[in-house]
Amino acid sequence: MMGCAIELRGVSKSFELLREKHMSLKSAMLSFRRRRPEQILGLSEINLTIERGETVAVVGKNGSGKSTLLRIIARVYRPSSGSVVTDGRMSTMLALAAGFHPELTGRENIYFNGAIAGLRAADIADKLDSIIDFSELDGFIDSPVKTYSDGMLMRLGFSIAVESDPDILLIDEVLAVGDAGFQEKCYARIETFQRTGRTIVFVTHDLEAAAKVASRAIWIDSGKVAADGETAQVIVQYLNSIAHQEHNKDG
């Protein structure tokens, strides 16, 4: 089953450079000068097509625009220009525990997170058992998540993201969570994902993990696609450029 899962055409994203973190309404109403805030270009003219069933690793230095790209695909940011088309239900694992409320139980939080992912109560009820199973939290699922450890939260978050059975899975940084055993389980789950023709896009600094999981890599540098192709080749190019820069710095 081929077809386009994600398509970006001429996507640029600029941000306003904020001089102060907060503005007050009072000063905004009293100031007569209207300075145009400076714009920083986060992404410029990105053209990208990701086919259904592909697993794509996005690599690049800090601040290169990797996460911005992922957020644009996830529709958290709107592009300043260009268009984004995605086909399929997306699940984002941009932060595993972002949607948890500490006072509610694990089970209640599963429902809430499912709702954020755009699922209905019946869909979530269907998937509830497999989510709890995968997370290995059956004994704690009716306790408030404020009593959970960080590891337990991560496991629950990962389980919700993968077991909600999305067509497109977006991951920022963490590809596998928990101890070695649980990480193995995560990788195995990702493999099943790939076999069933699901699309995965993940941002990572872990080049080893990228090489292990992804068939294709995209190197983002200063908001532009610097290289796009077979994972091993792109990683070599990326590492060469880092080595080159280090060399220039030394020399």
């Binding site: 996830a74 529709r75 958290v76 941009l94 932060a95 949607g99 954020i116 992912a117």
Partner: peptide, 9 residues
């Protein structure tokens, strides 16, 4: 804040 920065809705 966390939710807004991570997820579409």
């Amino acid at each position: 804040r966390d939710l807004l920065r991570k997820v579409y809705f």
